[in-house]
């Protein structure tokens, strides 16, 4: 298959998806715009203040938050990349034979080592 054919197949497969994305986006924006045209607008100071159980909001809302969230996000990135590495292996599994199996078992072993390390370091604790 030449490069040109490959490009055509690619376009053939992905142009409906691009079309779908555009239509979904248009649906969202058009609905919001229509709703904006018909809705009442009576802004008041009290109405626009943020909800804090009825009392006057105090201090800034963009407050510092626990570092735990950051740690979880980092671990997600690391582990998710390892998951992505598992996908191509799983697809070609039947062609790779014993070597592929053993190599991936070693890879999963490394995954487990990292996981146990994170566990023992307390990165998975939440309290």
């Amino acid at each position: 298959m030449s490069g040109y054919d490959l490009l055509l197949t690619y376009l053939d497969n992905y142009s409906p998806i691009l079309l779908f994305i555009i239509i979904a986006l248009a649906f969202g924006l058009v609905t919001l715009a229509l709703s904006y045209l018909v809705q009442p607008k009576y802004p008041e100071f009290e109405k626009l203040s943020v909800y804090e159980c009825g009392s006057e909001p105090f201090s800034d809302s963009r407050m510092p938050f626990p570092v735990r969230y950051y740690v979880i996000a980092m671990m997600f990135v690391i582990f998710d990349i390892e998951v992505i590495f598992l996908y191509p292996w799983a697809i070609t599994f039947h062609d790779l034979g014993a070597i592929g199996l053993i190599e991936m078992l070693i890879f999963i072993g490394l995954f487990v080592v990292a996981y146990v390390y994170a566990w023992r370091k307390g990165a998975l604790e939440w309290d």
């Binding site: 943020v50 909800y51 804090e52 909001p57 809302s61 963009r62 407050m63 938050f65 735990r68 969230y69 979880i72 996000a73 997600f76 998710d80």
Partner: peptide
Amino acid sequence: NSKYSLLGGLRSAAQLI
């Protein structure tokens, strides 16, 4: 710009990922 929203959003994202 609301405390409830910020906490909810963070929790949500952490849970989702």
